[in-house]
């Protein structure tokens, strides 16, 4: 079966003061019906840019899709009309963001903000949309939805606001839900509740999920497959269990060893907690013909500094963009 979403050789360019930088450089991946994948990587690796590109929401005048295709059900989202894109947004593909505190409009009630999306896409009247909004609030487990629907965002906690965002995102039963670090800004206990909620809703609706995170724990909990991004490029891709068991890219390896509990749970040997030295290169270095991780890599060789690594495939499912993937 054709995948639901197929991204091919995507290149996104960002205008910076120093010139044009490829924040996403030749990225390809697929998302199946009902599948859940996770994008992982440090800040500034292009995870959010990928999500915004799928939504057609790249910052106007600054970022643009330079080449490649984003095929959603066979339709290339990089070339469709604005009108068609609006039909898809919030309806077939929807998104929740990192900052629940600022993602809702402070001057409208949460009910209005949920009902609005139903009116826009489902042709519902004001009354029907409002009734549906109440049901949705109940579905995201906000107690006393009939009363809370008249609340303004400032009357709700961060976790509740993120629930409202989820209600908005799922209102039209989208085929894909993109969650951009949905729990980063929340307390740990609330994080767990949000993950529970997302998992349950996914089971009920069959929505495919793209989750963006830098939390390996969240990946293990939420996704079947993961894509590790580094400096705008795909470093590694594969089933979550396989990658955690045997990462084929030194960067993935570094990310995993930064997290104590997963390693402890999945392997008997409890390795030392380590960090990856250095930082993600600046935008100016993106797109150079070399391994962009080489400056931080413990296994770096001359080859890494001279040419961009080719992708090595393992067992037909795991792929790593590293010259030394065999040895890792």
């Amino acid at each position: 079966m054709e995948p639901l979403l197929k991204v091919e050789n995507l290149r996104i360019e960002l205008k910076t003061r120093a010139g044009v930088a490829p924040v996403i450089d030749d990225l390809s991946f697929e998302l199946g019906h009902g599948e859940s994948i996770s994008f992982v990587g440090e800040s500034g690796c292009g995870k959010s840019m990928t999500a915004l590109a799928i939504m057609g929401l790249l910052p106007e005048g600054i970022g643009r899709v330079a080449s490649g295709r984003i095929l959603f059900d066979g339709e290339d989202l990089t070339v469709v009309s604005d009108r068609r894109l609006r039909d898809i947004r919030g309806n077939e593909i929807s998104m929740i963001f990192q900052e629940p505190m600022t993602s809702l409009n402070p001057v409208y009630t949460v009910g209005e903000q949920i009902a609005e999306v139903l009116r826009a896409h489902q042709n519902l009247g004001q009354k029907a949309a409002w009734a549906m909004a109440t049901e949705l609030l109940d579905a995201v487990r906000i107690p006393n939805p009939g009363r809370r629907i008249n609340d303004y965002p400032f009357q709700m906690s961060g976790g509740q606001r993120q629930r409202v965002m989820i209600a908005i995102a799922l209102a039209c039963k989208p085929k894909i839900l993109i969650a951009d670090e949905p729990t980063t800004a929340l307390d740990v206990t609330v994080q767990a509740q949000i993950f529970d909620l997302l998992r349950d809703l996914r089971r009920q609706t069959g929505t495919s999920i793209i989750m963006i995170t830098h939390d390996m724990g969240a990946v293990a909990e939420m996704a079947e497959r993961m894509i590790v991004m580094y400096a705008g490029r795909k470093a590694e891709e594969g089933p979550v269990a396989d990658i955690i068991a045997h990462a084929r890219h030194p960067y993935t390896r570094g990310l995993i060893s930064c997290v104590p509990h997963i390693v402890a749970n999945l392997t008997d040997a409890r390795e030392e907690l380590t960090e990856i030295p250095g930082i993600v290169p600046g935008l100016g270095e993106f797109g150079q013909d070399r391994c962009l991780f080489s400056a931080r890599c413990p296994q770096v060789t001359d080859k890494c500094r001279k040419a961009r690594p080719e992708t090595a495939i393992f067992g037909g499912r795991q792929a790593s963009a590293c010259w030394h993937a065999e040895e890792v």
Binding site: R86, D87, M95, N105
Partner: peptide, 13 residues
């Protein structure tokens, strides 16, 4: 602002 991005992500005109 973030909420305007949300509004766009909803597919509003």
């Amino acid at each position: 602002s973030d909420y305007v991005r949300t509004a766009k992500a909803k597919g509003l005109t």
